[in-house]
Amino acid sequence: MAIFPPAQRIWWKEPIERSEILWITIALVWSLILFFMMPYWHLVGEQNLSNEAYRIKPDVFAERTEAMADKYTVREEGDTGTPVVHPPAGGDIYMLARLWEWWPVLELEKDQTYRLHLSSVDWVHGFSLLPENINIQVHPEYEMVITVTPNRAGEYSVVCNEFCGIGHHTMVGKIYVVDK
């Protein structure tokens, strides 16, 4: 019994029942499949996070984001005062997280590829693109660069899903994807 010491002085040499060996073999094969799915998806899949990241001072990141907004703002989002920015396809785009907003609103073109830069200027935030359900952690002083290719036109929201203080549940931004 498992609550008493093993009866035999040497238990290492006991035979193992066939179904147990069979199960261990099956489980091992499944473990290998689970493992190789990840590198496999890096080769053939279209959803992989890049490993591109930099250290960056929050004010530098804010400057770059503002520079993009100054150049490519096309309108304002409702009466929120937040600019809607339509950067050229294929280029670098920035989204900045701060208490408690995602800034600015981006307008992207369907099936175009962008280099999305994400960072925070204060605390840790969570970039959650809905209804896609793409979730990425955003840290202060680190900039993550992800190549994104929106595949459907429509209106998307960016919800914050890392707790960031009492206004956390109000932190929602937007991304529009338009047909060209």
Binding site: G78, T80, S128, F163, H169
Partner: peptide
Amino acid sequence: GVPRRHWDMSFADATMPY
């Protein structure tokens, strides 16, 4: 896509609610 640790999934106080 409902976020964890989140008080209000109706986003009543957000300027751009989802």
